[in-house]
Write a protein that binds this DNA or RNA. Sequence first.
DNA 1: ATGAAAGCGCTAACAA
DNA 2: TTGTTAGCGCTTTCAT
Lengths: 346, 346
Amino acid sequence: MKRVSLKDIADSLKVSKTLVSLVLNGKGDQWGINGDTQKKVINKARELNYHPNQMARGLRTGKSNIIGLVVADISNHFYAKISRTVEREVTKLGYQLLVCSSDEIENKEHNLIDLLKDRQRAEGIIVATTQKKASQFKQLIKEQFPIVFIDRNPAIKGASYVGVDNRQGAFEMVEHLIEQKIDKIGLINISPTHISSLSERVEGYKKALKKHGISYSNSIHAVSYFDVEKTTDEAVRQLIAPSCGMKALFAVNNYVAVNCLQAIHKMNIRIPEDVSLVCFDDMDAFKFSQPPLTTVAQPLEQIGEEAVKLLMAQIIDKDFSPRTKILPANIVVRKSSGAIKHERGK
Amino acid sequence: MKRVSLKDIADSLKVSKTLVSLVLNGKGDQWGINGDTQKKVINKARELNYHPNQMARGLRTGKSNIIGLVVADISNHFYAKISRTVEREVTKLGYQLLVCSSDEIENKEHNLIDLLKDRQRAEGIIVATTQKKASQFKQLIKEQFPIVFIDRNPAIKGASYVGVDNRQGAFEMVEHLIEQKIDKIGLINISPTHISSLSERVEGYKKALKKHGISYSNSIHAVSYFDVEKTTDEAVRQLIAPSCGMKALFAVNNYVAVNCLQAIHKMNIRIPEDVSLVCFDDMDAFKFSQPPLTTVAQPLEQIGEEAVKLLMAQIIDKDFSPRTKILPANIVVRKSSGAIKHERGK
DNA sequence: ATGAAAGCGCTAACAA
DNA sequence: TTGTTAGCGCTTTCAT
């Protein structure tokens, strides 16, 4: 099954490879190539079922037509949805998307980015980084390698970023709970906690409590990404223990929320009668969970679209001025944040 | 920011490109190249931060190191999980994974496969096909292009396939319901219904009912992938209407199940008191849904692993003998299949 | 034990 | 309006 190359078309038509290449790349008119000749070439290409070899073309042009996307876990609904949009958008522009999961391991992410850039010669990368160190990114930005950060802002000078207003979203969520007359609100964070989107949410949470004169000492726990089930059970248990007495739990993202739900169900505690549960990140599953969860929803499609836009400004327009796009996050009220029915402070 | 090439290393070491290539590809010993020279080369490569250009290498060797995965929708939990495993496994073997979503559109899938094979020169493809026509696949198999089918068996001579025993899984689920004294069991299928995994489940469903002497005329409805919400509402409404009187609904996959849950919640009907709901495909979300769902769980990791194994038999060992791996599907009993509490046949 | 040279398929500068 | 040629970076055959 030999593959058809430019040369095959050229030979069978008694013309040069150059001409064929020009025509097939739509530069026929521009170079004033005979209309009939063009048609012949195009027909022949179709007849022989010709497909350009991306590797040869890439080698010659220095363009791979590959965009990389690096996230913590592509099977997480949040990233899966974003990746769908990113794929759709870059495909429209003639690129292919290579998606990798870092498993929230800094080293792995570092390697993945190297691999994408150096081996695959990706032309740009979109990343929700888990790295604490900024050296790799600083270098990338310095050498003007196209890169856009999503979800997690590494706060590096010159970096372009797309995300939501985490502070505001968390702030509003806490105020919503307070409106329900709930003032004992625990926050369940997840380590690695240096991730900007998480710390911003914590800030929003603190700000709201402060505004209402509520203390948050002892009300924040962090579970571990690498041992979620056990650490979540513990965190929930401690926060709702009488000594602590939280009447609402705010899970810092969907992953934590799912584990909180499981932990709470295991303990045979009712939501929202015994404790309310809300979280950042929305998903379909939360519409019909037991009970439906009140969440802060992020505009996932828009995040993907904006990220591609910013990346293309760098790749195509060579515009490396750092841009930041902060989108609004909106509260979706469902049953889980209902006011606690029985007596308080018990 | 010029990239470092083999030549740069060769020049700075006053040796040939050949030698450098040989050493860096681990063929130094095999060619009897001086140990010291090898070390020098390796160190220099590291010092200059050398990375081979995949495109150049691919052009020369005819190998792209790319594997393609084509599914209906990568943001569906089922495919997302499988893709994670596939990615992990092919990465171990030095390949990169390119994932594409067909959106259940036959033409799109056809193009995606062409693109993967012809443009990207993917060395093999794993696909959960939505195509009714077999021509593309027959051609691929005829020319010994490495391809493995997952989840959906196209039933083409010579095709390799990995999936679960859908018939058995559906059969057991229906028997489980019957054990709960539920004998009015509706099935909600989804079009395109020609997909093998779906039709096998329908068969299993029918076989179980037949065994117990229960008729299934009027008890099967199919919703549409392209207008799920509306069609699911209708299907559920009709099946549980007094004229039909189903006491359990069996959703043919997770996507249908999610929509059934939403439809049922909207109608203010209780599960399982008013109607039971079970489905094929398990996900975390079903553990804590309202109520937790009884499901048929597929071994997702294993499906991914086996698919890669079969694909590699073709790519590496050039063994194109068709292999089929049917894995068991297991029932996970939760609350949603509980016996109906109130009087029957009303 | 090491090197020279050809060539994978393509594009683009330059010729004609 | 069309063709010739060089070369992208790599691997591999054949020489030395």
